[in-house]
Design a protein around this nucleic acid. Structure first.
Length: 697
DNA sequence: GAGCACTGC
């Protein structure tokens, strides 16, 4: 067991939380040494987290779980793993893990720490993300990884036995995989009392997290066990190093927040000193409009400002080179204005922002378990998000944040935290992951935030209909276990497994890989060219076969980026497709699937799609002249999306890959089928429903 | 003839 406690040193002071239940600790008044020169060591000591070093090590030593609340810039992510290692937690071949929600964060923080420690990345300090394992099983002592990768590791090592401490960073984001991980780690703790958890979060949601980890059901004490170990979580708060940000609220509610955004930006530009502006809007449409409006106003009305403006959009759908524009320093004498989605709230950090304009809205996903449909809706953000957005203005010097809502609204009506993703999502992937880890009682699982019973039951139904779960809700063999092994949505995994018998796995794996990337098409403003380009690959069977044609063309071009450009295809997306495809082939081989090609037999391929997606089957309404379809399952009214190659073709029977909801429900990525395949693929699902073709006059 | 917040395995 690691020991850091030295007799004669001051013990951290304990403070009882007045509300009871949770203990807070304060750092001993720091005997701050003089920082004369900026050696690496003194730079480390200047980080806010440094004065808590002793407290952190004490808490980790004596508590199963330590919750650390710290703003960005406190240095917790790079420093705490080092403190732990210095205190001996990586001795005896053990590993200190630190998880992040995003790949980029894993890579950059690991690289920074390796540099700071003067070691080669991939040796003492390493990282693992999908497609990239930069660790050494002999040498790596501190390992950064995405929480998704750690979940996958549990399938081989359910108790995560090689780790001595696991630090879950950015826990306040409450992403799906973070919440699953937290639930599982709590379970592991009961089997492995020596495991230490650190939950790092930027907001003060710490209490509910502490409540979650407070294990009141004490096991009987084992002989020789460290009885100083407290199962009650400790909370430690570490201040950040951001600058002060002055907040301004609007005095009257705005009716047109796009217009309000534009005039706020213009007024900042006219009245405030140099410094870049970051604007948060909800989506591509609003952002493109706002960029245009601001650019026009700056030119026409003639800005009073003595310097110019450069206005740039930022959202994930942009090409790499358009995104890079945002990161290049503003041209001399120009103010940069970045109009962004939520991507700038967590995923990307812009330097040099002094002013933030916050619309108060973002697009959020919601799931309706009754209809089994996920919707993207513009919704008000939480206080936590509003604070995070404001904080983006205080990274280089004191800044200002203009909120396009009233103070009273912020104080009294805004919810303090957003709804965790767990409660806004379809749960099929979550449930199958837990099943694969041997957790049978899904409905009784102890979550940081429980999803609704309806959502759980619906996911069990879907998995049952896919043949992944049996009557006792246990994973079937081999299909259930195979589906769980594949890192994909279970319906896509089922499609791949069905392709084995149909002897078209090579093609189906290609299609699965393409469906798993955002879009292989380049989005262009005037879309006529894109539509024409699509026609070169269009297949009468539908979008899935069209994708296959694109892939074959890409291979024939020798994976040329020029070819992609000429055909309005996103080269980076195609490279990702190749990576995913290779990973899927490896897993499929391990599962014993034969990788066979059906060449040009598109019928077996459509049957394989049906085997995974039969629940998404739709029939064209009889007498329909406007392309109205009804889903077979829920009789929902749906339409083929105009981006589909089957738009206006309107085959009688189709299967869709996903729905997007606007004023109508649109089916994206559609393939035509023969209704007799449905009963073949899922007799239990369709045996009671009439599958007569629609009657046309 | 319409539109895709953002991650992740």
């Amino acid at each position: 067991m690691a020991q850091f406690w030295k007799p004669g040193t001051a013990k951290p002071r304990l403070l009882d939380d007045e509300e009871g239940g949770v203990l807070f600790y304060t750092a001993p008044s720091s005997s701050s040494s003089s920082f004369g020169y900026a050696s690496l060591e003194s730079q480390r000591q200047r980080l806010p987290v440094f004065k808590y070093r002793t407290s952190i090590l004490y808490l980790v030593e004596t508590h199963s779980t330590t919750i650390i609340v710290g703003e960005t810039g406190s240095g917790k992510t790079t420093q705490i793993p080092q403190y732990l290692k210095e205190a001996g937690w990586a001795d005896g071949g053990r590993i200190i893990a630190c998880t992040q929600p995003r790949r980029l964060a894993v890579q950059s923080v690991a690289a920074r720490l390796a540099e700071e420690m003067g070691v080669k990345l991939g040796e003492e300090v390493g990282y693992t993300i999908r497609f990239e394992d930069v660790t050494n099983s002999e040498l790596t002592r501190i390992k950064f990884l995405t929480d998704g990768v750690l979940l996958r590791e549990m399938m081989d090592d359910p108790l995560l036995s090689k780790y001595s401490v696991i630090m879950v960073d950015e826990a306040h984001e409450r992403s799906l995989s973070t919440d699953i991980l937290l639930g599982l780690l709590k379970k592991i703790q009961r089997r492995r009392p020596e495991l230490r958890l650190i939950i790092a979060s930027a907001t003060i949601e710490a209490k509910s997290m502490a409540e979650f980890f407070h294990n009141r059901k004490r096991r009987p004490q084992l002989e020789g066990e460290d009885n100083r170990l407290q199962t009650e979580p400790a909370i430690l708060s570490v201040e950040g190093r951001g600058y002060n940000v002055q907040i301004f609220y609007i005095e009257e509610p705005v009716s047109d927040y796009l217009q309000a955004t534009v005039s706020t930006v213009m007024s900042i530009h006219d009245k405030e000193p140099m410094g870049d502006i970051l604007v948060f809007l909800t989506g591509q449409d609003d952002i493109d409009t706002a960029v245009q409006m601001i650019t026009e106003q700056a030119q026409n009305s003639g800005s009073k400002s003595s310097f110019g403006m450069i206005v740039l959009p930022l959202y994930s759908g942009l090409t790499r080179s358009d995104q890079d524009l945002v990161f290049s320093p503003s041209p001399r004498g120009k103010r940069k204005v970045v109009i962004s989605t939520n991507i700038a709230e967590t995923s990307l950090t812009l330097e040099g922002i002094v002013y933030v304009v916050d619309s108060g809205f973002s697009k959020q996903r919601f799931y309706n378990p009754i209809t089994d449909i996920e919707n993207l809706v513009v919704a008000p953000i939480s206080k936590a998000s509003a604070r995070q957005r404001a904080g983006r203005a205080g990274r280089v010097r004191p800044g200002k944040c203009y909120r396009l809502y009233m103070e009273d609204y912020f104080v009294n009506e805004m919810s303090s935290h957003g709804i965790p993703e767990m409660q806004r999502s379809n749960l099929v992937s979550t449930v199958i992951q837990l099943k694969a880890l041997g957790i049978d009682n899904i409905l009784g699982f102890d979550w940081p935030a429980s999803p609704s019973a309806e959502a759980m039951v619906r996911s069990l139904e879907v998995l049952y209909s896919l043949g992944v779960l049996d009557d006792d809700a246990k994973l079937t063999s081999p299909v259930g276990f195979q589906v769980a092994e594949l890192p994909l949505d279970p319906m896509v995994s089922k499609m791949i497994i069905a392709s084995d018998k149909l002897e078209c796995s090579e093609e189906i794996i290609t299609i699965a890989a393409i469906l798993s990337v955002q879009s292989i098409w380049i989005s262009v403003k005037g879309q006529r060219e894109l539509d024409e380009a699509k026609l070169r690959f269009a297949a009468s069977e539908g979008d899935h076969v069209t994708f296959l044609n694109v892939y074959r063309g890409f291979l024939q071009s020798n994976k040329s980026s020029k070819w992609c450009h000429k055909n309005f295809i996103n080269y980076h997306a195609m490279k990702k497709v190749m990576e995913v495809r290779e990973q899927l082939r490896r897993v499929a081989q391990r599962l014993g699937l034969a990788l066979k090609s059906c060449q040009n037999d598109m019928q077996v391929l459509r049957k394989a799609v049906t085997a995974g997606f039969f629940a998404n089957a739709c029939r064209l309404e009889a007498y329909s002249h406007n392309g109205t379809y009804k889903t077979l399952r829920g009789s929902q009214e749906v339409y083929i999306h105009p981006s589909s190659v089957l738009f206006r073709v309107n085959p009688k029977w189709v299967i869709y890959h996903s729905l997007v909801s606007t004023d109508r429900q649109y089916m994206r990525n559609v393939i035509s089928i023969d209704p007799s395949w449905l009963r073949e693929a899922a007799p239990h699902f369709y045996n009671k429903q009439p599958l007569n073709p629609p009657t046309h006059h």
